[in-house]
Simulated assay, not measured.
Amino acid sequence: MEQAAEEDRQHAIVEGYADKDGVPYVMVIIEGGWSHRSYGHSYVAKSVVAIIVVNKMGKLLFLGIRNKYFSICSLAETRKPKSNERKYYKNWSSCSFSMESDILVEGFKASEKTHGLRYFKYIVDGDSSVQKEISERVPYGLQFVKTPIETFV
């Protein structure tokens, strides 16, 4: 991811894609995924993964995972282990429906610090809650986060 980001950062600089603050920017594709049960069962995912991929190069820039349940964590809680050296993967306790947007907002927020980039435009599958969260919570402002329709204008 670091190498992909550096390549795209250099490409943005060469092409002159920098904002008013001089920070290079790129267009990205964002996507989230989670499991669903079929055949009429009501099911809310306990784990969600979301990614940010640079549009031009098609390379991964960010990957995030939220787990609402992890069997080893649950087992450890009941056994109360003496050692705190275990690594636990349960990292979410809020509503399952907000996991995807939280991951993607995290990726947008980390873009400058991690890669020296801003995500100027993004392509998303039309999830309005994700678009709303990014618009409201991304620190570098609305002028850099565009809706999917605007990405093709």
Rank of each mutant, 00 (worst) to 15 (best):
K46W: 13
F144D: 09
T78N: 12
L117S: 02
S98P: 01
I149E: 11
A45D: 03
Y69P: 06
V44Y: 09
Y140T: 01
Q3K: 08
T147R: 06
L61G: 03
V138E: 04
A5P: 02
D102V: 00
I29L: 15
V44N: 14
V138P: 00
F120L: 01
V53D: 08
N84D: 08
S83W: 12
Y25W: 03
A12C: 02
T78W: 09
F144C: 08
G107K: 07
V48R: 01
A110T: 12
K121C: 02
S128L: 13
E100A: 04
A12M: 13
A18E: 09
S94F: 03
V48D: 00
F97M: 06
S38D: 13
L142T: 08
S129Q: 02
K80L: 02
I72E: 05
K109M: 13
F108S: 01
H115D: 08
D8P: 11
I103K: 06
G141C: 03
P24R: 15
N67W: 15
V23W: 13
K46A: 06
S129Y: 05
S93Y: 15
I72R: 11
F62H: 10
Q10L: 05
K146H: 05
V14Y: 14
P81D: 02
E112P: 02
E77V: 03
N84I: 08
H36E: 15
Y69L: 01
F62Q: 07
E100S: 08
S135I: 00
L104F: 03
H11Q: 10
V138L: 11
Y140R: 00
K82D: 14
D125V: 10
E100N: 01
Y25G: 08
K56R: 15
S35R: 05
S128E: 03
L75Q: 10
K121I: 10
Q3R: 13
Y119S: 02
F108G: 00
V23E: 10
D125R: 04
M57A: 14
W34D: 05
L63Q: 07
N84F: 03
F70Q: 01
R137D: 07
K80M: 10
L104G: 02
K82G: 14
A110P: 00
S111T: 08
G32P: 07
W92Y: 05
Q10N: 10
A76V: 11
N55E: 15
G40D: 06
A110M: 05
I30Y: 06
L142K: 09
V26Y: 12
M27Y: 12
V105I: 14
S128C: 04
A5Q: 11
S128Y: 13
E2Q: 13
F97I: 12
R137W: 01
Y119H: 00
N84T: 14
E133V: 00
G33Y: 08
V54S: 10
Y119C: 03
K132A: 12
K68F: 14
R79V: 15
A12I: 12
F120Y: 10
I103T: 05
F62T: 05
S96D: 09
N84Q: 02
